[in-house]
Design a protein around this nucleic acid. Structure first.
Lengths: 223, 223
DNA sequence: TTATTTTGTGACCGATTTCTAAAATCGGCC
DNA sequence: GGCCGATTTTAGAAATCGGTCACAAAATAA
């Protein structure tokens, strides 16, 4: 949960008070509402994460959710509303691993744990990872404000922390920003490029990604 | 140029002999044909690399190319044809850096040069990188055959080479496949997630990506 | 020049897409 | 049962999609 979340949610709403699609105004959601909104969001996550915003259609989402198309629009104010809701939900969880990186902990442990958490997320939530990748690939048209107001300050804070650890001689010399980029890219790769990875890892068994990345970043960061 | 290329091209064609859109059958292309096909492909690269196959429209491409929609379809047999042509062109150049990795060279030099070439490509051809990323994100529906027939054998060959270097004690212990994934992901990140990187690197100057990646992989690979 | 081929366009088609309006149906509650 | 709000469906409007076609304009060959 971050400060920017409710702001985005608020900005995005058309502020109509008449639809059950607005969890802010509708005090109490029915069981059916909760169930169907969940179904729709789950189906939409499949579709948006594969085809991107422009490539996704309400028909695809409706079929995947097992609901009629107008019924989808009974629960959400439109395609944009669904997509924005997904991005907002994503924001709630996406930065958690980075937030958890603790200034009080042992630097190497903290960073290797962070790698582990990011890799777990890529493997447990590949659709969310691809949804994010799609949004950034398209130039982050809907998420740039959140990147600036939410991610950037957190990023700067953690870069400063890593730099401090380096200055204290507790980590090897590394550019903190590029280090974080390397952690993000190597971990998310297994979700975003799953189709390619699956083809290439076919055949004889390979070392798990986890041990490779742990070894790599340990070597990189050990002073 | 790979064996699979002509096969893919062949499969995709409707084999009509009447359109200038088929560079295989039309012996000599006029200047106008070459110029307009170039314009269309350049515009289509913009659109496809941003919005993906389903999200892109012929209207967008036509506007970006400065041509009318029917005129686009005079030069190409359809949306699919344009996209496939782009992917085929991409294949011609995308694997070159990996191919160049030389069994006769010094292992560390070869791998660090490979990192450098991949990073150069990400910075010089970001649209191509995003086109590729989009295709894989969507499950590689059009490229999986090429991944299997073209990339996989090359990948296995280079993995074996790296493993041999390791066995000879000329490189540190590393899983070759995951090493290559790490090289791909870290370099392509700067093209595919450019929108995010641009936001986060704003402010005080940072070390260039090149020196970070060079240092990182040198440290990882030095025995 | 004329004849012919190449290149380009406006009008249009059927299918798809987002979204609305209104009627029909469901589910509880008295 | 009968009422009332919540849910769902039917019907379709309006715009956009990929693609076609007849024909005009321009380039080229004779």
């Amino acid at each position: 949960m971050h400060a920017g979340w409710y702001i985005l949610q608020f900005d995005a709403k058309s502020m109509s008070m008449t639809s059950p699609s607005d969890p802010q105004t509708g005090k109490k959601q029915t069981r059916i509402q909760r169930r169907n909104r969940m179904r729709i969001l789950d189906a939409a996550l499949d579709v948006f994460s594969r085809d991107g915003y422009r490539g996704a259609t309400l028909d695809q989402i409706a079929v995947a959710a097992g609901l009629s198309k107008p019924n989808i629009l009974y629960y959400f104010n439109g395609k944009e509303d669904i997509h924005l809701t997904l991005l907002n939900h994503l924001m709630e969880t996406w930065l958690d691993p980075l937030i958890e990186m603790d200034a009080e902990g042992e630097p190497l442990d903290e960073l290797l744990s962070y790698v582990q958490r990011k890799l777990d997320m890529a493997q447990d939530l590949p659709r969310e990872s691809r949804l994010f990748a799609n949004e950034i690939l398209q130039g982050a048209p809907r998420m740039r404000p959140h990147l600036i107001r939410g991610l950037k300050p957190l990023f700067d804070e953690k870069c400063a922390l890593i730099q401090q650890w380096i200055d204290e001689g507790r980590l090897a010399q590394v550019d903190p920003a590029h280090l974080i980029f390397s952690i993000w890219s190597t971990t998310q790769h297994y979700a975003d490029f799953e189709a390619q990875v699956a083809v290439l890892l076919e055949g004889p068994a390979h070392e798990p990604a986890q041990s490779h990345l742990a070894a790599m970043f340990r070597k990189l960061l050990t002073p």
